[in-house]
Amino acid sequence: MDRGKRNFLKIAGLTGAGAYVGFVGAEAIGNKPGKAKKKLALVIDTRKCKGDCPDCIAACHREHNVPEEHNPNFKGPPVRSSQGIKWIWLSTFGGAFHEQVNEHTGRRKDPLVVLCNHCDNPPCTRVCPTKATWKRESDGIVTIDMHRCIGCRFCMAACPYGSRSFNFHDPRKNLKAVRPGFPTRTIGVVEKCNFCAERLGEGLLPACVEACTKKAMSFGDLKDKDSPASVALRSAYAITRKPALGTGPEVYYIL
């Protein structure tokens, strides 16, 4: 290669690199997360919810086309339940609060409803390399752009609550009935509870809250003193999962 070509390539390369650095800088500055205007929270009253009915889980999974794991129609490699998708599900007191219980804790084996905590300071969004997941400024919901997710699963490693699931299989294959109003997901992306952002947009309550016949769930904006969530939190002693990590979970459990 002669000198002219070489120099041209060098200059072009350097210019390109420089332009890209500028672009990265602009992206970094332009994407500073602002303060959330609302602070949506879910308060679960464990005195009322004994985890013995499937209502909230069924409602959520129907609403969002969450695939069932053991569909007899499923063709392809068998789905291990450890590869399943969960938005809201039953753990136990001893599981969700495992650092706080011991073998004498009375209710440690009782079922407990768990879901994404829509943390104030979410580590899952911090690690995402494509801005596919972020905390919404309008209401504090931690959301995922399914078009953007590359399926690297860094967020799953970063979430200290095991709230995120990955589409190990084509979700359509595992769905008995598809509800037309909500998109399914595609193979290879991460998903989780979205606090029913689509329903809130229409002025509805989250599906789980609405479905709960025991009235054990209160949902609302904690910046609004009169929201059901604020009222519920004032009335009793509530705890969150792993508060020491500084993530600021917005799902509260009344004991």
Binding site: F23, E27, C149, R153
Partner: peptide, 15 residues
């Protein structure tokens, strides 16, 4: 990666 077809997003949307 779950979606290797989207690998360019790492460079298009640098974070």
């Amino acid at each position: 990666m779950g979606r290797p077809d989207r690998v360019v997003y790492v460079f298009l949307h640098p974070t």
